[in-house]
Amino acid sequence: MDIMMTLALSLETAIGPIAAIYVLAAIGLNMHFGYTGLLNFGQVGFMLVGAYGVAVCVTTFGLPLWVGFCVSVLCSVVLALILGIPTLRLRADYLAISTIAVAEVLRLLYRAEFARPVTGGVYGRQSFADAFYEFNDRVGIIPPGSYGIGDVDFSADELWLMLVSWACVALALGMTAMLMRSPWGRVIKGIREDEDAVRALGKDAFTYKLQSLVLGGVFGGVAGVLIALNQGNITPDQFMPQVTFYLWAMLLLGGVGTLWGPVIGPVIMWFLLTLFDETLRSLASSGALPFLATSDSGALRHALVGIALMLLIIYRPQGLVGNRKEMLVNVK
């Protein structure tokens, strides 16, 4: 495999639907942690209820896709309320523990045998996304064919999903930008700095935190819907805690508490990950590294992410687009 192909593949991943999905979930996480200071270690839980919302509605109950989408959003809101109402009056750590636990419990519930009639248990749900692609075929927003420049190349279906995913990202970014430039955003950032001070000025910190949790959770839920549409089938075990930690790594890479950080982070991370995987695979298959089996690339990939994060925290703790001065003030 030549270098151009590898680069093209990496670029495809970086601008493809998966990157867009991670961007959307990271924007939600940034709303939680970057702006409000809420420690959410269970963003994958929102993605899970989002993905299963459409999947279950369409396959189990035979409802139209758009109803499934509404159910997904509703499930995300409910999950945020369940997480937030008991914990947001307490110290910050309680939310952190609850999120990580609830996300994992949800995965176990969705894959449980008794849930099988509804969620499909460990086998998950299949073929619910047809209506989404048929819509494009019928309306012809992206006519059939192949699109791309050089080795970068997408099918009509892929491009249709990409279009929708990045449109969701644009919408989420626009909302975030408007909110954070408004007095609402000022209170949210104030809560991140010192909740008691904000409360002493007459602002109901609890309600603001809950609103932020719901909004960021809905972004995560919609990211889950897009995962479901992208794959056309879902299983509970793809919503492992690692997904949340990848999101955190991407957010930290891009820059916490910035508008563009959660966009830049996942895009660059996916580019690097694919580049790394592909390079390793071609080296392994060409026999240049005899001690390296193709199957080792997964473990090495995690090591790479770890090293990258370490370097980042040492040399650029504010992330790629963060403000170093603001970052250091916190240390004082």
Partner: peptide, 21 residues
């Protein structure tokens, strides 16, 4: 926060500046 809205506003002995604002 309701107390503050009713017109009784307090400051803290250990200052609470909102540092990154």
């Amino acid at each position: 926060h309701r107390v503050a809205r009713r017109g009784m506003v307090r400051t803290f002995q250990l200052t609470k500046a909102l540092t990154r604002l």
